[in-house]
């Protein structure tokens, strides 16, 4: 059997582990260089989920958290796009998981103690699979900025957390996607940890094409995962 290895993580695109302006990195970053590894079968295979793992409302956060019959408060949005690899090839049937705070900047998580209201009708978690062309779509409520303890008067820009698998264990990606024109971006040590030339890849694009008349504003966000390279793997 021969199967391709995947391109390495491009460290010109990903943040460095140690970013002292983001305080939690100081005691949690590896201090020794990563050890380069020749990929084996363990690295080029990965978990596979079927479309039957997804429930019908899993991609609609405006509906999947309703507890008292009313819709969640806030601005409804559509977030949609494609998952591609570095070669521009669509990534079909890949799992995307999301989580976010509500329209007041509060997460449902028990450890979030920010003094902003919980919305009883918004849970903030969801998931979907890309279709056969690599497309995905979520309906949600626009998340808000919220304060955090990193430095004096620190605020996270509004963001949605994303988790993707892609075709293999090494194509795993967890990231955050932000909103265009947010003045907090330049002040956020997590966003700013990203190399400048790649920061734009973390910002959604406002899209009239995705905007649904009378219902929700549309935002486009594509993902680029590591792709196979030309080196065949011998087993």
């Amino acid at each position: 059997m021969r199967k391709s290895q995947f391109n390495m993580r491009d460290w010109k695109s990903h943040p460095k582990y140690l970013t002292p302006s983001y305080k939690s990195t100081v005691l949690r970053s590896p201090t020794k260089p990563l050890i380069p590894m020749k990929q084996t079968l363990s690295e080029i295979t990965g978990p596979v989920y079927g479309h039957d793992s997804i429930n019908p409302l899993d991609n609609d956060l405006t509906k999947n958290g309703i507890t008292d019959g009313r819709e969640p408060l806030g601005e409804r949005i559509v977030v949609s796009g494609k998952v591609l690899d570095e070669g521009g090839r669509s990534q079909p049937n890949t799992l995307i998981e999301i989580w976010q705070c509500n329209s007041a900047g509060r997460y449902i998580h028990v450890n979030d103690q920010h003094d902003a209201p919980i919305d009883p009708n918004f849970f903030g978690g969801g998931r979907c699979m890309t279709d056969e062309n690599g497309h995905y779509k979520f309906y949600t409520i626009k998340p808000a900025a919220y304060p955090w303890g990193n430095h004096v008067n620190a605020w996270r820009p509004a963001h949605i957390h994303f988790s993707l698998f892609g075709p293999a264990y090494v194509t795993r990606l967890v990231t955050q996607s932000y909103f265009p024109g947010d003045p907090l971006l330049d002040l956020d040590p997590i966003f700013m940890s990203t190399p400048k030339s790649s920061q734009g890849l973390l910002i959604k694009e406002f899209s009239m094409d995705l905007t649904e008349e009378g219902f929700a504003l549309g935002y486009k966000f594509d993902f680029i995962l590591r792709g196979p390279n030309a080196t065949p793997m011998e087993t």
Binding site: N7, R9, D10, S13, H14, P15, Y22, S24, L84, D85, E86, G87, G88, E97, I98, W99, C101, Y107, I108, H109, N111, D112, F123, G124, G125, G126, R127, H161, S163, L173, V174, T175, Q176, I190, F191, S193, T194, P195, S197, S198, Q199, L201, L202, D222, F223, I224, L225, R226, G227
Partner: peptide
């Protein structure tokens, strides 16, 4: 090649989305 989408931290509040049952959601 297209540029890889940068990674960002998972943050402290992932469990209700990624490990909901273990975390009691």
């Amino acid at each position: 090649l297209l540029k890889q989408t940068p990674s960002q931290t998972i943050g402290p509040f992932f469990s209700y989305g990624l490990t909901p049952k273990q975390a009691g959601y």
